[in-house]
Design a protein around this nucleic acid. Structure first.
Lengths: 240, 240
DNA sequence: TCGGTAAGTTAACCTAGGTTAGCGAAAGGT
DNA sequence: ACCTTTCGCTAACCTAGGTTAACTTACCGA
C-alpha cells in the first residue's frame, strides 16, 4: 500500500483542520522539518502512564485513543482519522490515555516542546490548535452523551454516522457509506457495549434497513430514516 | 450569602489554574477590567444553539454544562466548580452545550474576542488556557470511561471522589467530605442513570460503609476501601 | 394554616444488555 | 496440508438497571 505523502503544511491546510497559512506561518512550519512516519497496524504507539513528549498529526489510517482499566476492560475515547490531531497539550507530563494504530498509519510526529516554541510568536497558529482542541472536546462530549443517554441501537447508529461524516469531510467516504476496518470488538469498546451485543445491534440495524456494517464496509441503507432515529446533526464536527 | 470577590488576576493565580503571572500579563489582565457577575441558582446562562461570545470563569458556586436531547433526556457533561473555566474556544459560533447554575454563582465573564486579542502577544497566557483545556479534556475522558465501562456502584463512587478531589484542591472540601448541593436527579444526569437507581446505589454505598451522601453532604466513610473499589487516582485532575 | 411542589425513599415488576457457550469462516504461520 | 487464532454469528440464560407507582418529608408561598 502506498500513501499520499503531503508536507506537514499541506496537512494543516487540508480538512478537517483547513488552515489558511500566512507566508510566515508556512515558513515556520517548514523549518520544523517533519516528514511522515509510518506504523504498522495494531501497534501501541504511546502507553498510558508513559511520559509522552510528542504530538501526533494523523496523515492516513485509523488509530485509537483508549484507557485500560484495572479489571481488563477498556474504553476507547476516540478513533482519530486522517487529519486529526492527537495529544494537543501545553506541557509535558505522563500520558493519561494510550494511543494505538488500528490500520497501518502515516503520521507527523512533532515534539510538543518544539511546536510550542515555534508557535510562540504565531498567535494565528496557536488559535488553530485551540480550535482543533475545541473540536475534539465536542467529539468526546457527544460520545459521552451517546453512552450516557442513548440505547444500544441509537448509540451504534449515531456513531456510525459520526464516522461517516468525519470521513466524508476528508474525502474518504460519501453519502452511501465508507470502508471501516473496525472489528465488532473495537466498536464495542468505543460504545461501552459487549461485542456480542454490538453484533445483535448491527443485525437489527441491518434488518430495519437503516445501516449495514458487514465485511469492512458501512453502508447507509436509508439515511433519512436513520437520522430520524438518531437525531444526528454533524454541526459538532465542524472546525467553526 | 456573601462571596469572597477576588480580582480576575487573583482568580487565575489561585488553584486549580495556579498561574504564575508576569508583570506584563498581570497588567493585560487588569486592563480587561472584569468584575465578578452573579447569577441565582437554577438559571440557564447559555443555551445550546445560541451564539455565545463569552467565556466564563467560575469564581464560586456550582454550575452544570449539559446537553438536552430530543426525547427530553439530558446528559450533564461537567459540573464546573470554583476555579473552573467554561467555554474555552478559539472562535465564536453557536454553542453546542448549555450552561446553567445549580447554586448561586459568581463568575467572571469575558468576551472571547477581547480575551483572544489581549492574549495575542502573551504566549504564556495562551499556554495557560491550553493547559486548562487539556485538564477539561482529561475530565470528560474519565467521565466517558466511567459511563462506558463502570457499573452504577463504582461509577457513582468514583464520581463522588472526583468532586471531592476537585473541591479539596480549591479549599472547599477535605479528606472527610464536602458539601454537595446536587440533587439525586442531577447526579443521575451526570452518571447516565435514573434518579431512582442513584438512590438505590447511594444507599448501597452507605450500607457498605464506603461513602454517604445525605442532606447535602458527602462523607467518606472509608476512603481506603472506597479507592480499592473505584481505583480512583486523582492524577487526571492536575494542571500538570 | 393549608396547599402545592420538589426531593428523597421504597417495593414490585420488567427489559435491555451482559454472560456463557458454542458454531463456522477466514487468515496466517510452519 | 495442517494448526491456531481471530472474527463474526447465534441461542439460552441471567442480572443490572429502568419503569411504575406509591408514600414521606421539607420547604415555600398565599
Amino acid at each position: 500500500m502506498t500513501f499520499f505523502a503531503p508536507t506537514f503544511a499541506q496537512f494543516l491546510e487540508a480538512p478537517p483542520v483547513g488552515a489558511v497559512l500566512t507566508r510566515e506561518e508556512r515558513d515556520a512550519i517548514q523549518s520544523l522539518n517533519v516528514g511522515p512516519k509510518h506504523y504498522q497496524s495494531h501497534t501501541v504507539i504511546s502507553r498510558q502512564g508513559d511520559v509522552e513528549p510528542r504530538i501526533f498529526f494523523l496523515n492516513s489510517g485509523w488509530a485509537c485513543v483508549y484507557r485500560d482499566l484495572a479489571n481488563g476492560d477498556r474504553q476507547i475515547i476516540d478513533i482519530p482519522l486522517k487529519g486529526d490531531i492527537v495529544g494537543i497539550r501545553a506541557v509535558d507530563g505522563p500520558n493519561y490515555n494510550s494511543l494505538g494504530s488500528i490500520t497501518d498509519l502515516s503520521v507527523f510526529e512533532i515534539s510538543r516542546h518544539a511546536l510550542a516554541k515555534s508557535l510562540q510568536h504565531l498567535p494565528g497558529l496557536s488559535r488553530l490548535f485551540m480550535r482543533a482542541a475545541a473540536r475534539q472536546y465536542s467529539i468526546v462530549t457527544e460520545h459521552l452523551t451517546n453512552t450516557g443517554r442513548r440505547n444500544a441501537l441509537v448509540r451504534t447508529a449515531h456513531y456510525l454516522q459520526e464516522l461517516g461524516a468525519r470521513l466524508t469531510a476528508v474525502g474518504e467516504g460519501n453519502e452511501m457509506g465508507y470502508e471501516c476496518p473496525l472489528t465488532q470488538h473495537e466498536l464495542a469498546d468505543v460504545l461501552g457495549l459487549t461485542a456480542i451485543h454490538v453484533n445483535r445491534t448491527l443485525r437489527e440495524l441491518r434488518e430495519n434497513e437503516l445501516v449495514s456494517f458487514r465485511s469492512g464496509f458501512v453502508e447507509f441503507l436509508n439515511k433519512q430514516k436513520l437520522t430520524k432515529l438518531t437525531s444526528f446533526d454533524a454541526d459538532y464536527l465542524k472546525m467553526t
